[in-house]
């Protein structure tokens, strides 16, 4: 098999807080190949956003990264690069889209200037050429009348349009990896579907790799090749998307799927909520971190932490001592 585009090895990202060391990401390993979309799913505080920022190298000053943690992009160890080479990489080879397009866009620059800025800086385009390219990109991301929109300011656009602009900026330098952190959480449901389709289409057309971070299982279901489920700073289950939904093995994933209300359910069906709360990441309990909330818990789970184990066929991995084909309620 070809070398993966991105390799994350034993990533540990801890934060120093007033109460102690917070283990936001605690030993995450995965690989992502060219042209694939990985969905990263989890609830607030599971570490999915911190993982994305760790890959981008955008972490606050109170961060401690683990000794053996490595992020290897296209054969280069990002931890060994100096700040200047990292900056060159960001925005050109790795691009990111954030949840709130209002705060990620600069309010005092026109849309065209913001798209053109990266082109001029990273690719040395002339001002005129950059503008032409900006119009093209706006057309690519489905913005009507791109010649008019290119001279408008972010506040003149709706939320969905702003997120399209953010995508155009991210795509402007032909990145090889696109990280989308909750790109549709702030948007209405009809706009969300459009934006997700746009991202998926661009990813396939440009043969990019994409990490799609979300709290919504429904978002990754139709728009990713593989899914990693995170809980309390770790990946607890990973599989090809259809496999994960068909053959759920980790009880947390199953519980998460069961707690989602579905349009097909009859009204007033009682939802199987997950009891309890996620663990304290400053003083995590011993053993499997999901054990206190798990319906299939055994003695061993409370004593030893299960590693992420890959099945022999290489398509499914879970961090669970007693993986089951628990499936989901129909």
């Amino acid at each position: 098999m070809a070398m993966p585009l991105l390799q994350v090895i034993d990533q540990r990202t801890y934060f120093e807080t007033g109460r102690g060391l917070l283990r936001a990401v605690d030993g995450v390993d995965f690989e992502l190949h060219q042209g694939r979309t990985l969905g990263v799913v989890g609830e607030s505080g599971c570490g999915k956003t911190v993982l994305a920022r760790s890959i981008m190298g955008l972490l606050p000053s109170n961060t401690r990264v683990g000794e053996g943690s490595r992020i290897i992009f296209d054969g280069r160890d990002l931890g060994a690069l100096d700040e200047k080479s990292l900056r060159a990489l960001r925005g050109s080879e790795i691009a990111m889209i954030f949840q709130d397009p209002m705060t990620s866009l600069n309010p005092v620059l026109t849309v065209g200037k913001q798209i053109g800025e990266t082109l001029i800086r990273h690719h040395g385009l002339s001002r005129h050429a950059a503008r032409g390219r900006a119009v093209e990109l706006l057309r690519d991301v489905g913005i009507p009348q791109p010649e008019v929109r290119v001279d408008q300011y972010p506040h003149q656009l709706s939320g969905g349009m702003r997120q399209r602009v953010a995508i155009a900026i991210a795509l402007s330098c032909q990145p090889r990896l696109l990280i989308a952190d909750e790109p549709t959480t702030a948007l209405d449901v009809t706009v969300q579907a459009d934006i997700l389709d746009l991202l998926r289409r661009q990813q396939i057309e440009r043969d990019m790799s994409m990490i799609l971070i979300t709290h919504d299982m429904g978002v990754v279901a139709g728009r990713s090749d593989e899914v990693a489920v995170m809980y309390a700073g770790r990946i607890v289950e990973w599989a090809e998307t259809p496999e994960l939904f068909r053959n759920t093995r980790m009880p947390y994933t199953a519980a998460l799927l069961n707690s989602i209300p579905r349009v097909d359910d009859p009204p007033h069906r009682r939802i199987d909520a997950i009891a309890g709360r996620p663990p304290d990441l400053i003083h995590p309990p011993k053993g499997c971190l999901f054990a206190p909330r798990c319906g299939h818990v055994e003695q061993r789970c409370r004593r030893h932490s299960p590693p992420l184990q890959l099945a022999s066929d290489g398509t499914h991995a879970q961090a669970c001592w007693f993986p089951q084909s628990v499936g989901t309620t129909p």
């Binding site: 579907a193 279901a221 998307t241």
Partner: peptide, 8 residues
């Protein structure tokens, strides 16, 4: 437009 948690 509702995203269903079901790839099928």
């Amino acid at each position: 437009a509702v995203p269903a948690p079901d790839p099928k």
